[in-house]
Design a protein around this nucleic acid. Sequence first.
DNA 1: CTACATAGAGTCAATATGACTCTTATCTGG
DNA 2: CCAGATAAGAGTCATATTGACTCTATGTAG
Lengths: 224, 224
Amino acid sequence: MSDGIGLAVSAVIFALRPHRESGEQVLHLPLVRRLRAPFDDHWALPGGWVDEAESLADAAARTLEATTSLRPAYLEQLYAFGEVERSPDARVVSVVYWALVRSEEVARTRVGQNVRWFAADDLPTLAFDHNRIVDYALWRLRSKVEYAPVAQSFLGETFTLAELRGVYEAILQRPLDPANFRRQMAASDEVEPTGEFTTTGRHRPAQLFRSKAAPTAPSPWRAS
Amino acid sequence: MSDGIGLAVSAVIFALRPHRESGEQVLHLPLVRRLRAPFDDHWALPGGWVDEAESLADAAARTLEATTSLRPAYLEQLYAFGEVERSPDARVVSVVYWALVRSEEVARTRVGQNVRWFAADDLPTLAFDHNRIVDYALWRLRSKVEYAPVAQSFLGETFTLAELRGVYEAILQRPLDPANFRRQMAASDEVEPTGEFTTTGRHRPAQLFRSKAAPTAPSPWRAS
DNA sequence: CTACATAGAGTCAATATGACTCTTATCTGG
DNA sequence: CCAGATAAGAGTCATATTGACTCTATGTAG
């Protein structure tokens, strides 16, 4: 075989949280403070070593829950990073996943001293090549949201079209026309109306929708 | 660390070759005959173990050249396959790449007893989970050709639009309207006319084109 | 009851796409 | 040397999609 090569998994976990000042929904991700060298005291993506008895995806879900106690609504492999000098001293190949978690789930979570949420567009300098990894994950999320039904994973079982549009706007960082958004969703077969309506705050009640086709898995699985 | 986990690379290498009967251009890929257990005597994707001193992409290119002596015009990571029971007895994680090689390059290559080209849509039962991997690579190639300039990698420095269209037709397995294809290519900024023309066979000479934007790398690199 | 805000439907011009026609340039067979 | 045959390359037309915009319905707050 080969070896002397460490095999790790990490995850870029996205959630929507209100920005501390503006209050707008903004993409955030949880980072973990490193407690040993290399990059002692730097922030890093949650992750860990792959167990011999678990698949890569299982390892990603496990380490993600162990470090942040989050359970994602969507999980997909991002890329395997395998440059030689990614980590000083050791050779490490990281299979990185990206994940989306619902806002409810975020609230449920206690984050301690060593886990903290950061706005995705305003990160400190991270350990290893993790800044680059986050950039790539962001690019992938923003691309994928345009052609695949992933945005729903940020929301609960049912949601209004305005809420869903808010998710798209937060991801794409630009306003979308409500009427056109509604039309595209109606045509796209991604959501379906439940009969129910919001017993709303102060405006006309909005109909609740639910996702139709469950967000499809990565796609190696589509082939099977 | 972890370990006891073998880290391998494999490659799905596509080239266009005339189908043995119909003579049409068809996607082919080279497979390697296994000479030991497990799956002794089965055909498998070319690959090998990752060296401690080389990146994943380098390992893919090296093992690919070592087993098939092909040098690809395009190489991109496909997926990291890491199910527990992929390989009997051992635990192996395979980072799989997919590649495109020019037809010239194919001709230049001697393939021996233990390396053979197969039509991509008509494969035998392969070792490990390699059939599934090929299916996924095919899906990826067919998707990607619709929005990224990868088809050029099958051709040489210059080519006519008819040749390029032939590549698309072979990949997508459906005829494309010549006039519409020309229009889209003109609009797409992917190719540019050289001034030269084919000193043709028996018809009106066609202008030669070359690719404009070099086929972009995977995209973790676009972010940097 | 009035003002206001969002839900949701509809209009219109610009653009992209598929199917098709027409002209031009070359080779081949008589 | 001329008459097909064939592909190159330009152009036409009906249709679908998209962005920008308008209009009406239905709730709450005062």
